[in-house]
Computed example of a mutant assay.
Amino acid sequence: MKPLKDTAILTTVANFELYQKTANLFPEGIQTYVIDGRNGMHALHSIFYMFKKLKNKGIDWLVMADEDVIFTNPQSVLELIEFMKRNEYSVSGVRDGGAIKHRNNNPYAINTFFSILNFKKVSKLFNTNEIIGNQYVNKGEFEDDLSKLVYSFDKKSLYEPYYCFYFWLRRKGEKILFLNSKMIEEENEQISNEVFDPNGTSLLIHTWYARSYGKNEKHTARIDEVLKQISFASNPRKPIIFKDTFFFIKMQVSKTFKKVKMKLS
């Protein structure tokens, strides 16, 4: 397959043992990047860091997928990007409320386990301070039809600090494509969820609990069972890896400063 120079996939990895297995199933022909998250970097910090590190890489479309995401139809991801282009969507993903049994938070934002981002367009709008200032929800601000959501949700939830990124995009007038998801209801598997494209084609299974893989017997066995059901040939990736060496130290200093400030005030 001819390489797609303008498309890339990024994973913030906390568990490289699992990543080495699931990365075999990534879409072919696209550049692979990793943010080393073993020092605690994830979520909003990871989003900010990726814009810094990927800014001049010539990326138009960026797929973001955690290491506990197992692609069932990898190349369908590229078809989803084409759909997003045609319909002028800037980001796609699964709602963090109402679409997944154990995620009952805000339905107006996505969960970052998997998303596709029009990186070129959003990079031109990107403003850290603006984004941070969007961690709020105004009553009646978003008019999504939530009537088909199966599970509970909280329209006022600010549970995840990264919500501000998606609220910011929405307030900028950017369109979000919310993907359908269903739980895998099997005897030993009621945690994972399967994600579908707009045509109903299976894209991936998100197994959750990446950090527990290789450490917790239950979750390791559960994730391995999902991997066994997916047919794939070994396709080792050689990702470009980024790591903020001093991230943990900076976070500790920041926490200490906040504590001191609170005491003084």
Rank of each mutant, 00 (worst) to 15 (best):
N73Y: 10
N73L: 07
P74L: 08
Q75V: 08
Q75D: 14
Q75H: 14
S76W: 12
S76K: 14
L78M: 03
E82H: 10
M84Y: 13
M84H: 09
K85W: 10
R86M: 10
N87L: 04
E88R: 15
E88V: 14
Y89R: 06
V91M: 06
V91K: 02
S92V: 02
S92Y: 03
G93R: 08
V94E: 03
G98A: 03
I100V: 15
K101V: 12
H102G: 09
H102R: 11
A109E: 00
N111L: 12
T112E: 05
F114E: 01
F119T: 01
K120T: 07
K121D: 10
V122C: 01
K124Q: 15
K124G: 15
K124R: 14
N127A: 10
N129V: 06
G133K: 09
N134Y: 03
N138L: 15
N138A: 15
E141C: 05
E141P: 03
F142V: 04
E143P: 00
D144L: 11
L146A: 06
L149N: 05
K155L: 06
S157M: 09
Y159N: 09
Y159P: 00
F165S: 12
Y166I: 03
Y166C: 03
F167L: 02
W168A: 04
L169G: 04
R171C: 11
K172L: 13
G173L: 02
K175Q: 06
I176G: 00
L177S: 04
L177C: 00
F178Y: 11
K182T: 12
